[in-house]
Every structure is written in C-alpha cells, then in structure tokens.
C-alpha cells in the first residue's frame, strides 16, 4: 500500500521536475551579463568573443541549448565550469557534504528541540511558561537569519571567543551556523506541535481513551503525538527547502564552504553551468523533502493513503 503510494508520488515528480528544470534554465539566461565577459582578456576583439561564445554553445537556439543541457544532466554530465574551469561535478561534490552536514544538523536541531518545547508547553499549561513560549515563538519567526548570525558571531565568537568567527574547521565551527538556521525552525516546530497537540486533545476520541482507563501519559504518547506529528511532518518537509535556502545566506555570512557559497560565487561570475547545477541540487532537495514528508504522512494516516492512491 505504502509502496504503491510512494511509486505514484514519484511518477508525479516527473512533470514537476521537468517544469523546474525549464525554470532553472531560463532564470540563468534572463540574468543580465554572461560568463564570457569574465573570460576575456583586456583588449580582446569582438571576434575573440564570438569564438568563445561558440565554443560554449551559447550562440545556439535556446531550445537546443536546453535539450543539450538536460540531456547531459541525465547522463550525470554536469559539464565544465566556464569561469572556474573545473568539472561542475567536482565543485558540487566538494561543497555538497558541507551543506548536507549543516542542513542535516539544523534540521535535527529544529525538529527535536521544537517538538520537545511544543510538547512541554502543550502539556504543562502554566501562565509564565506560556508567555515565555509565545515570546520565543514570535522572536523565532520574525528575526532574520543573517541578523541573528551576526549577533551570534559578535557575542560568542568576538566577545567570548568560544567559537571560530568563520570557516569550517571542526565541530565548533558548526555550532553557530546550526543555531542560526535552526532557531526559526525551533520556534515554528514548537508552535505547530503545541497547536496540534491542543487540537488533538479536544477530539472526541480522547474522552473514550480516558474512559478505557488509559493513563494520560499513554494517551499522550500513543495517541495524541501521532496526531500532532501529521502537521509537524508537513512543516518539517517544507522546512527542508527553507533550511537549504537559509544555508545559502548563513554559509556566506560564516564564510563556510558549501552549495550556498558556491552558488553565490557562481552567480557573481555568471558561471551558468555551476549556477544551474546548484539550483538543480537545491530544487531536488526540496522535491525529495516534500516527497519524504508526503510518504511519511501517508504511512501514518490511513485516510491519506486511501484517498490518494
């Protein structure tokens, strides 16, 4: 049942990825400027330029260029970075692990801490705790990541000297970036968990669970939590894209290598193949995140499994 559902969802990804690839391809061409300018030596003639343009196939029809590109992608052929003059695949392979570590940790941080805080605030209904949680949630959902990053750097790195200001050496360099990306996520997940738990508590079937003689703890963990998890999983799945997006700025601010840093540099140089590859990886991650979220939800909720398959 769940396999069939997963397969159907995978099929649905085909048209989606096609549209996304077209968009990514077009965005890059709509940017002003082109990478050839970065390759030209001072005093080159228009003929030199035309030659280079032809060499990279940039003079061909856009449609043809698209199909050449997507065809290459399918064969895992990411091409050659125009400005950096290295295989794009190498660049991606070099940077991806950094982003995955950062994103993965930020994801873990925001989901575990967020769900714990949300559960505590739903179960322990104390006025002071409530006010604290609400303030925290407001802060977490309004403070921009880069600003928080700068504050954290100033305080913990510059003033206290606990963590390095930038770079990617050892685990200490991960602490601040993970906090920066994860903070907003913690607040969001905590809020969704809390609301979902309170909603679940009001359901009719909870009365009957108590009437069976189950303890409140059992009811919370075996019945209410699964219900609360449904919206949390949806949010977390969407969050994967958000976290990767956040990684772009945070990597930049903290001077960490990663897909985000690579993308920003390549954008500056109009290095089309690199930009396209980075965007494609990000889009892929978002699609995978959504897919995993949907499948996880379907595996938890029999009603969804039946409706959609």
């Amino acid at each position: 049942m769940i396999l069939r559902y997963t397969f159907l969802r995978l099929l649905m990804l085909i048209p989606v990825s096609f549209s996304i690839s077209v968009v990514i391809f077009m965005i890059v061409y709509l940017l002003p400027g082109d990478p050839i300018d970065n390759l030209l030596r001072v005093g080159s003639s228009p003929e030199d330029r035309a030659e280079l343009v032809a060499q990279y196939g940039l003079d061909r029809n856009l449609v043809v260029q698209y199909f050449v590109w997507i065809g290459n992608m399918f064969q895992g052929e990411f091409g050659q970075a125009i400005v950096l003059r290295r295989p794009v695949a190498d660049l991606v392979a070099q940077n991806l692990p950094y982003s995955l570590t950062l994103g993965g940790l930020a994801f873990l941080f925001s989901s575990t801490v967020g769900m714990t805080l949300g559960t505590i605030s739903a179960v322990v209904r104390h006025p002071v705790l409530d006010r604290f949680m609400r303030g925290f949630i407001l802060l977490g959902s309004t403070v921009p990541g880069f600003w928080l990053a700068l504050l954290l750097i100033l305080f913990f790195s510059v003033n206290l000297g606990w963590f390095p200001v930038s770079g990617a050496g050892g685990w200490t360099s991960l602490v601040l970036p993970v906090l920066t990306i994860g903070f907003g996520g913690v607040a969001l997940v905590a809020r969704v968990t809390r609301v979902a738990l309170l909603d679940a508590q009001r359901e009719d079937f909870v009365t009957l669970l108590h009437a069976k003689g189950l303890s409140s703890g059992t009811i919370l963990f075996r019945h209410l939590m699964p219900h609360a998890l449904l919206p949390v999983v949806t949010i977390l799945a969407l969050r994967i894209g958000w976290i990767l997006g956040g990684a772009v700025t945070v990597e930049f601010v903290f001077g960490r290598p990663g897909l985000g840093s690579l993308l920003i540099r390549a954008l500056g140089q109009r290095d089309y193949p690199v930009v396209q590859a980075c965007l494609l990886m990000l889009a892929l991650a978002v699609m995978l995140g959504t897919l995993i979220g949907d499948v996880a939800q379907a595996s938890m909720d029999p009603r969804i499994r039946e409706k959609k398959s």
């Binding site: 359901e203 009719d204 079937f205 009365t207 009957l208 669970l209 108590h210 009437a211 069976k212 003689g213 189950l214 303890s215 019945h223 699964p226 219900h227 938890m300 909720d301 029999p302 009603r303």
Partner: peptide, 24 residues
C-alpha cells in the same frame, strides 16, 4: 479511578464517527 474506567464502568459516547482514533 483508572482501574474502574473501562474495567468495571464502561462508557459509550454519542458520535461513533469520531469516537475512535482514526490513525489506529
């Protein structure tokens, strides 16, 4: 009380459509 509930005193509620946990 928990030993009595569901043990020696049973409850049947009004709306069977919503009285069971839909996820189990």
């Amino acid at each position: 009380y928990r030993k009595l509930r569901g043990g020696r005193i049973g409850l049947i509620t009004q709306n069977p459509m919503t009285s069971l946990d839909p996820l189990q």
